[in-house]
Simulated assay, not measured.
Amino acid sequence: MKDIVYEWYGDRKNVDEMVHWSKGKLKKWEQAVAEFFPPKAKILDVGCGMGREAFALSDMGFSIMGIDISEEVIKQVMQLSLQNCYDIPFSIYDGHTLPFDDASFDVIIIWAQTFGIMYGDTYKSDFLNECKRVLKKDGLLSFSGHDYRYALEHYKHYTNGRRFYPYANAEIYWETFLPEELTSYAENAGFSVMLYGQGEIYKPEDGIVLHCLCRK
């Protein structure tokens, strides 16, 4: 993961803004995907941010662990967890290696912007292989990214090639994807694709994201 990503998510003022992104519930497409998760599944939330997904999934009866590259994020999400009486472990990781034994989780989620800030094909491919290692037999992986065609149509002035720049005067960007690219990443890592396509967020004006659900 490039320094610009570590610097952005390590800056307290940027992390403070993230608190207001959460609506406290899963997005429509996330809810649809979560229906495939086994009851009481042990889930690893990669790039957990301020815990929106982790808290919502915990409320649904799943066992969650959240990891993030930002020490500031982990510090704040742990405080939120404590304040709201959740018993969810959150920890920092290096962005490349998952610090867990083989076959540790039933499900791994890489939601929001996380997959799009794993810059380059090699990085993403290596990370999906790392996910495969820590998933149990028949374990599920769900990951998402921003739709290149949608970004080009609706936010062309924020787009440069496949890069989407969400913040003014900032170097950080999100990579954008075509649907078949997400499935290719999954298949090249040896996963079987179960579901993929565009997913709704909360309401039409929020736009859509691309997502892929696959099985080890």
Results as ranks from 00 to 15, higher is better:
M1Q: 08
D3Q: 12
I4Q: 07
V5M: 03
E7C: 04
E7A: 10
W8K: 12
D11E: 11
D11P: 01
N14R: 05
N14D: 04
E17H: 09
M18P: 03
V19Y: 07
S22Q: 10
K25H: 10
K25S: 14
K25D: 12
L26A: 09
V33W: 04
V33C: 06
A34T: 05
E35M: 10
I43C: 10
G47E: 00
G49C: 06
E53V: 14
E53T: 15
F62N: 08
E71S: 11
E72Y: 06
E72G: 04
V73Q: 05
Q76K: 15
Q79T: 13
S81N: 10
L82S: 15
N84L: 09
C85N: 15
Y93H: 07
Y93T: 03
D94I: 07
G95C: 05
H96C: 12
H96W: 07
P99E: 05
P99L: 07
D101Q: 12
I108V: 12
A112T: 08
Q113G: 12
T114F: 01
I117T: 10
I117G: 03
Y119P: 01
G120L: 06
G120T: 02
D121I: 00
S125E: 02
K132Q: 09
R133T: 04
V134F: 04
K136N: 13
K137N: 14
G139I: 01
L141M: 11
G145L: 05
G145F: 00
D147I: 02
Y148E: 14
R149N: 14
Y150P: 04
L152H: 14
K156Q: 13
Y158A: 08
Y158D: 11
Y158Q: 15
N160Y: 04
G161D: 02
Y165K: 09
Y165H: 13
E171H: 09
Y173H: 11
Y173F: 13
W174T: 01
E175S: 01
F177A: 06
F177T: 03
P179L: 05
T183I: 12
S184I: 05
N188Q: 08
S192F: 09
V193Q: 06
L195E: 15
Y196T: 14
G199K: 03
Y202A: 10
E205I: 05
D206G: 05
I208V: 15
L210N: 10
L210I: 07
C212P: 01
R215D: 02
R215S: 10
